[in-house]
Design a protein around this nucleic acid. Sequence first.
DNA 1: TATGTTCAGTTGTCTATACAAGTGGGTGTG
DNA 2: CACACCCACTTGTATAGACAACTGAACATA
Lengths: 255, 255
Amino acid sequence: MKSASLDRHSFVPLCYQIQHRFLEQIRSGALKAGQPLPSEQQIASRLRVSRMTARHALKGLCSLGVAYSERGRGTFVSRIKLEKDFRQVLSFSEEMRMRGSRPRSTVLAFRKTQPDSQVAEALHLSSKEDVFLLRRVRLADSVPLCVECTHIPVRLCPDLQKTLDPGASLYRTLREHYGVQIDIADEVAEASLASAEEARLLRIPRKAPVFRFTRTAYFRSGEPVEFVKSVYRGDRCKVVNRLTRRLGLGAEGSI
Amino acid sequence: MKSASLDRHSFVPLCYQIQHRFLEQIRSGALKAGQPLPSEQQIASRLRVSRMTARHALKGLCSLGVAYSERGRGTFVSRIKLEKDFRQVLSFSEEMRMRGSRPRSTVLAFRKTQPDSQVAEALHLSSKEDVFLLRRVRLADSVPLCVECTHIPVRLCPDLQKTLDPGASLYRTLREHYGVQIDIADEVAEASLASAEEARLLRIPRKAPVFRFTRTAYFRSGEPVEFVKSVYRGDRCKVVNRLTRRLGLGAEGSI
DNA sequence: TATGTTCAGTTGTCTATACAAGTGGGTGTG
DNA sequence: CACACCCACTTGTATAGACAACTGAACATA
């Protein structure tokens, strides 16, 4: 029998222990794409938990996208690859490290300032609230990839100019010094051409193709944390997304 | 008391009736951003359901992104806007109609063919399986927006050349004639410049900025359904995405 | 052969209850 | 005033059981 028993005194809830066990089996290849997972009943009786606990574990796998359920048939391992480079809410530094590159930054500007109307609207700022403006060239393995201009309300991190090591990760500083945890981000990408200044900073020809991003990041509550405008080289960057069908929102379900 | 009672004989499950009720209240403005929803206990006693049913309804709202829970405090309406134009798995036709434009297509090619290696790999095709190739210029309100080249395994829709009205929605045809329901899509976007042919078809200058997309669409099971390469005008199109932080996947949770 | 039936197994929904653990306010003490 | 403590309320997790609805295969019937 493959199943070592669960740790009922762990501070990790049982359903997550079960979920983690299946994740391991899927990643290791012991459970292959398309294969059925044990039924809720089987999990419940083998591991001596209630069926709802087993079910919760399986549902967790489904919402991660690694499995899917069919009524009357069972729950199966999804055939979809779990590529790691689907865009999540990651900082530039996190993203570069995840793909094995060494991130670095050159600070072009870092000051307190009054937001223009676009920034104020995106961050829901009251009329005279100040923001930090941080403009950087960001490099991976010494190759410049983008020019990024970040705006953060001063209220969220009053003494950022003392605490931020400008070369380090801004997100890490926000997390460790201010408990600021970003959960959601809205992003708009446009295809465009490099201006003269951008071309110089990125070391590409003028009028080379670039992405222009604006990005607003939020807490879980929906309060805005950060507004970023950035320009990425088109020859070294791709935007990878996984889209899913959401049900139950505004437009009615008739599809 | 605001709560009309639930229909216990409806074929709509109770938890979805509850969820729908709150969605209505949020959309109508009766429940505003940041306000607390009733607690699980309150819902349970007011509507005479068990707490788990009430909880299931609230969790559904959370996974839709319209609410969030905080342990010990309650569940609150999210401040995040539910813009409709966040990219879901929508066909060009669906997307255009959602934003109030009239979609149209010009068919450049529609034939059965052998897939090249990129297509075969994306669709997980065995060596000699054929695909339909459908190449179209897609217009919104008579303005050409993109050139799109779709590949679909013949196996999934053997007589597509009879059933497809080439002007109509491909996705609708797939759904209505073959029960093919697409749930997930992976998309890669690049910033690039228009070739001479693309510029002519899209009526833009040569070397104007464009998006190049590749897109693979899947069933819920992860079986690939469709592979698309497309070129979008950079001056009329934006890519809008909402990114969320996912927990529990490959890289460990220490963030 | 073709068709309908039954049946075991599965997920979906629901009930009722219990305890753990975090939040926030109030109270009483020092 | 500051601090510890308690209490009511909240969400998170878990249990045990129930019925509905669906699937697929085995079986019986015409």
